[in-house]
Amino acid sequence: MSKGQRVVVVEDDPDISATLVMVLERTGLEVHATDRGERAVELVRELSPDLVTLDLTLPDMDGTEVCRRLREFSDAFIMMITGRSDEIDRLIGLEVGADDYMAKPFSAQEVRARVAALLRRARSAVEAPPLTMDAGGGLTLLPSAHTATLDGTPLPFTPAEVDLMAAFASRPGETWTRGELVRTVWQGEFIESDFLVDVHVGNLRRKLRRAGSKRSWIRTVDGSGYVYDPS
């Protein structure tokens, strides 16, 4: 992780918040914490962080609503903090714009690994040249800016969705397993690959359909994974 990178921790449990702040500050990150959703939106707007860790259970606002508001103006990576049994919450959170999730209880090692993976992607995007990627079918990706357009119209992809589509487009017609996608896109350990990948693929398909596309884009290969097909 690089010094100068900034994280906003949104967590109403004081013990968990203190743990996250301590672990992240020890890695050299600038960390700001709040236990309120409204304040989280203000902090992200003021600070333009690289990453937000977001608890879904907050006293003043549902975490998914915070995520939805952040996505109106921020392209920071968002990692949800959830309970292990909250699969519906994880699904909703990923659908409204989160890039990743981490289940409670978690270890300091897991926090460091998961945050480092996301921030490597944030740093590489900043340092990468602003090259566009023709993904076929009128889809253009700009991974360094985490943006995408379809026939010139901007698409509401999250940073993780842009990275995932860029991975697919780098190997059109080839099968990607879910494990390969996690290693390529999320670059981390401690990840339940099937759930995370499947939800993001579903989000990409839905957003492309809403943009008016009738192409298949990403085909499911039973028992294997996915194939990118922009034809």
Rank of each mutant, 00 (worst) to 15 (best):
E192R: 02
G138T: 13
V182K: 01
P154V: 06
R210C: 09
S107K: 01
L47F: 04
M1G: 14
R69D: 14
T177E: 05
V227I: 11
F73H: 13
E110S: 07
R36G: 06
G93I: 10
K3V: 15
M22P: 02
S231C: 06
V52D: 09
D99L: 06
I78G: 03
E46R: 07
R123D: 11
F77D: 15
D229A: 14
I191T: 11
V44C: 01
A103H: 12
D151L: 09
R36N: 06
R183K: 13
L54W: 03
E161K: 04
L58P: 04
T34N: 08
S48H: 15
E127G: 02
D15K: 01
V197C: 05
D99C: 04
E30Q: 06
R209V: 11
T149D: 12
A117R: 03
R205W: 08
G93P: 03
D35P: 04
D13Q: 04
S107Q: 03
P130W: 08
T177P: 00
R215N: 11
F77S: 05
V8F: 06
G83I: 05
E42L: 02
L155Q: 00
V199M: 08
P156V: 08
E72W: 01
G173F: 01
K3E: 12
F73L: 06
P49N: 12
A169I: 13
L164E: 02
L181W: 05
D13M: 00
R84P: 08
V199Q: 01
A40Q: 00
V126H: 10
R45I: 07
F190L: 03
E38I: 08
D12M: 00
A166W: 07
M79V: 09
D89Y: 05
S144V: 08
S74A: 12
A160G: 12
V7G: 03
V111S: 02
F195Q: 05
L47R: 04
C67W: 01
V182W: 00
A108N: 12
P49M: 11
K104S: 14
D134V: 10
V10L: 05
V115E: 11
K207E: 12
K104L: 15
R84N: 12
R68L: 13
R178I: 14
M22W: 04
R69E: 15
G179C: 01
E174P: 02
A76Y: 02
S193H: 12
G173D: 07
M79L: 09
L58N: 03
L20D: 10
G83S: 14
D13L: 05
F73E: 14
R171C: 03
L142Q: 15
